[in-house]
Amino acid sequence: MLAQQRQAAILDRVRAAGGVRVSELATEYNVSDMTIRRDLETLAERGLLAKVHGGATTVSPGSAHEPGFAAKSVRQRAEKAAMAMRAASLVSPGDAIALSAGTTTAGLAQRLVDVPDLTVVTNSIPVADVFYRAGRPDQTVVLTGGTRTPSDALVGPVAVAAIGTLHLDMLFLGVHGMSERAGYTTPNLMEADVNRALVEAAERLVVLADHTKWGTVGISSIVPLDRADVVITDDQLDETARTILAEQVNELMVVSAQ
């Protein structure tokens, strides 16, 4: 297969799935990882896709654009893993917690499957599936109802009503973006309603957001920056953003992806 043919096929894959991984493409086309990276670089230079750690995703068109779960799962994988590890250390046996939708919180779920006597409330289908597959009998998992979004979140009045009667120890909130002006944001209006309900139900709010989320603004604000008790981010976040967050939240945790 010629390079141009392979690049056209890769672009079709990205547009169909929302994201691709270098390792998968290298296996499929029987070429080296370096060859695939050069292909992605060529396509990125033409503005046809966005290169991310370990792969590529579609180019985001604006504040209302909502990438699918698969597309987001290839972004900042090392950073998300480090943040999930730190977040898991905050959870104790017997806690009642909530995990919002998102790939970062799905990674956190994988680190919580061995915590005994845990009660987990979530509007995320992938998060619920992690606990379901683990099958630990002393864990209780509550999946809200609602309408499914591209990021596999359940949203709408059914989800909001289900959350409204709950009292939780802690919420782990994944966000689309965060900024000093807009606070924590999402590209989905109904998901913002669900996330606000989760915030109200929890005694403590922990936001998980890698460095790429700073300055990204979704169409709907969830809560202001200072509403978070803890923000967990990675060490690629610039100093200006760190200063702003440190002034706004009770505790800023910065982790290394190395």
Rank of each mutant, 00 (worst) to 15 (best):
A209P: 10
M170Q: 10
A192Q: 02
T57L: 06
G47N: 09
D138S: 05
D193C: 00
F131I: 08
V91T: 13
R148F: 02
L99H: 08
V74L: 01
H53Q: 12
A71R: 03
S220R: 13
D12K: 14
V230S: 02
E200Q: 14
I222V: 15
Y184F: 15
P67C: 10
V127S: 03
A162D: 14
S220C: 07
I36G: 01
P93Q: 14
G164R: 11
D39P: 10
V127G: 00
P61F: 01
A153W: 00
Q139G: 02
A87Y: 07
R21L: 07
R196V: 11
E180T: 12
V158H: 03
N188F: 00
L154K: 06
R242H: 03
L48T: 02
T140Q: 08
F69V: 00
V130Q: 09
V22C: 07
T212G: 08
I97Q: 02
V31T: 12
R38K: 13
P187V: 03
T57W: 02
M190L: 15
G47E: 02
S89P: 05
T119L: 04
D169N: 09
P187A: 04
Q7G: 03
T103V: 00
D210E: 14
P67D: 03
M83A: 10
D152K: 00
T147P: 01
T122N: 05
R38I: 10
E251W: 07
R136Y: 10
P93H: 14
V20L: 06
A106Y: 00
T27D: 09
V249T: 11
H211M: 05
H53N: 04
D226M: 03
D138M: 00
S63D: 10
V52D: 01
S32D: 11
A228N: 09
T212E: 12
A87S: 07
S73A: 09
L43C: 08
P67G: 04
A70E: 08
G107S: 05
F131M: 11
V59Y: 04
T185R: 11
P93N: 12
A161H: 14
R148E: 13
L168H: 03
R111L: 15
V130E: 08
R75V: 15
L252Y: 06
E28W: 04
L25A: 01
P116T: 07
G47K: 01
L225T: 12
H167W: 10
L205F: 01
R111Q: 13
A246M: 06
L173Y: 01
H176D: 05
A70Y: 04
L2M: 11
A134T: 10
V231C: 06
A246F: 01
G68N: 11
A246T: 15
V14Y: 12
T147Y: 07
V31P: 05
A197F: 15
D33Q: 06
H176S: 12
N123M: 00
V207N: 06
V20I: 15
N123L: 00
V31Y: 03
V175Y: 04
S60C: 07
